[in-house]
Write a protein that binds this DNA or RNA. Structure first.
Lengths: 170, 170
DNA sequence: TTGATATGTATCAAGTTGATATATGGAGTG
DNA sequence: CACTCCATATATCAACTTGATACATATCAA
């Protein structure tokens, strides 16, 4: 499904695979991301299917392959975005460990959760920093909304684990 | 990383791959799951590594391969569960679509979100039904806790999308 | 009796990750 | 000025994962 995010990022102009990866790191990273090892083959496939076009150039001595979306590609993207979406599946190792917490000593449980809460706090801090950076740029309102949702999501998680830690302490 | 969940499910007795998959569907499914096409090769690998042992039998005419965890496997599992855990990455198509909502008409936006909220409500209903089913059984407290967290998580999502729908309507 | 569903193992194409390779440019340091 | 480190940029690959499909038997309802 990564091809859709690539098409999405091409909707406002042509980009290289690397550029898209960097853009993701500043925007969609925390709720949807892809590796470079996936982006390059995906672009080749999209090109074969006629959904994107590629233009090679050499800038500052480096090979650049700029991809742009075709009318057919736009159609595919707009169709995808208007399609019904199923519930996203989580894959959360931290919760999985809680599931098996019976096999961990009470002290270790508390330590792991305290540790994880710190991780969450750090992550929230990063997202807040990203938010103030993006506020200076003139960014799409919906893209800012997804960032806000990310912050709220991790605050919910932080909250939940804090409450869980309290019950562990009793 | 699926091998850890397999080892975890073997900690309280030997099981077949199919049994584990069915157990997951009634427990870890919403925060961590694996396909059968992944379980069988994973067990073969775990067997090669000496972390599980396999016993073949034929029950009611069907071949059964019961796997049990070895002392070495227990060590690996207990080590994994006591290790520091990083923040789980989400991969949420619904949020990705919101990110690109600029390309959708206002009416369509509302429709998609209303639709998705219904999906979430249905999912919450399923989890509540699962909860009351599990309450009749004598289930591990931590395993029940993860189910509660799942319910709260989807209620948070439901809440967030409801608020988002309100702002879309203005 | 027939058809649908559940139990159970297995394989495979297609896709994904994370690591690694290759190469150049630019910035900072001694 | 040389050296190192990092960013830019494309590409490949082993290992793994998914989702579909195949196969075979049992069980249950109509």
């Amino acid at each position: 499904m990564q091809d859709k995010i690539l098409l999405g990022f091409l909707m406002d102009g042509s980009k290289t695979g690397y550029e898209i990866k960097k853009t993701m790191e500043q925007s969609t990273e925390f709720f949807f991301t892809t590796s470079l090892g996936s982006i390059y083959p995906a672009f080749k496939k999209l090109e074969r299917e006629g959904l994107v076009e590629m233009a090679e150039s050499i800038e500052a001595g480096r090979l650049k392959k700029k991809y742009s979306i075709t009318p057919e590609g736009k159609k595919v993207f707009l169709n995808w975005i208007s399609l019904k979406t199923g519930i996203a599946k989580i894959r959360d190792e931290a919760i999985l460990k809680v599931f098996f917490f019976n096999y961990l000593s009470p002290d270790e449980r508390k330590n792991r959760i305290e540790e994880y809460i710190k991780e969450l706090e750090g992550h929230i801090g990063e997202l807040l920093a990203l938010k103030s950076r993006l506020e200076k740029k003139n960014i799409d309102a919906f893209q800012m909304t997804t960032l806000d949702m990310g912050i709220e999501y991790f605050m919910f998680m932080n909250n939940w684990y804090s409450g869980f830690l309290d019950t562990l302490k009793k």
